[in-house]
Amino acid sequence: MIWQQFQSLIGSYPLALRGLGMTVALSLISLVLGTLIGFALGILRTGGNQLISRVIGAWVDLIRGTPFLVQIFLIFFILPELGIELDAFTAGIIALSNLAACFICEIVAAGIRAVPTGQVEAALASGLSRWQRMRQVVLPQAMRMSLPPLVGQYVLLIKDSSVVSAIGLTDLTRVGWLVVQRVPNGLLVFAIVGIGYFVVCYPLILLARRLESRMGAAHGEVQL
């Protein structure tokens, strides 16, 4: 019985690969976009402009304080009513990138704030411009502190990507739903789905742990 189910599961491996591919593609694109936007937001958040900082803070709070599923529904079902048509993939990317950007913004901002004032003063006193201070002095030190939580955030992002199956994208989780209709063994199917996610996330978890122990190193830049 189990053996038969297993065989028909093996038969659906092209679908599973497609799902895994979709999950990885969604995660990877959102991870890159979210990181870029998150860094920009984090730098702006700690910059001198109070208004910009407040607006970003409010947006981050809003996104962090609402369920991701609700955010996806708003983007996919409500935006078209305002005349913005999005396919499911684009909607998923937007929602995931936005979520990642908001979390990464806070991580980066916390890292920047943790750099001692004396460092900024030394850079200021030597005549470095605003961007040079950020690029040469503040960000490298902020990165040392931000990197472990940043990688941890990537793991969360990959897992959150499973929510996009709710708007019909055939990612790993949705493949699970499709397969379980043919192979009526939910435990087996979703165990395999879980393993799929774990295989993608585990290297990142290991990386985060390694970076964290590197943080204890007294000096030098973090090298990946």
Binding site: P116, G118, Q119, E121, A122, A123, A125, S126, G127, L128, S129, Q132, Q136, V137, P140, Q141, R144, H219, G220, E221
Partner: peptide, 27 residues
Amino acid sequence: IGFVFQSFNLYPHKTALENVTLAPIHV
């Protein structure tokens, strides 16, 4: 204007030589 701080404020992620050459190179 050179400014020497009580607490040194060297850049911890840069070597002594990099600390010294940062501003000459970039400024």
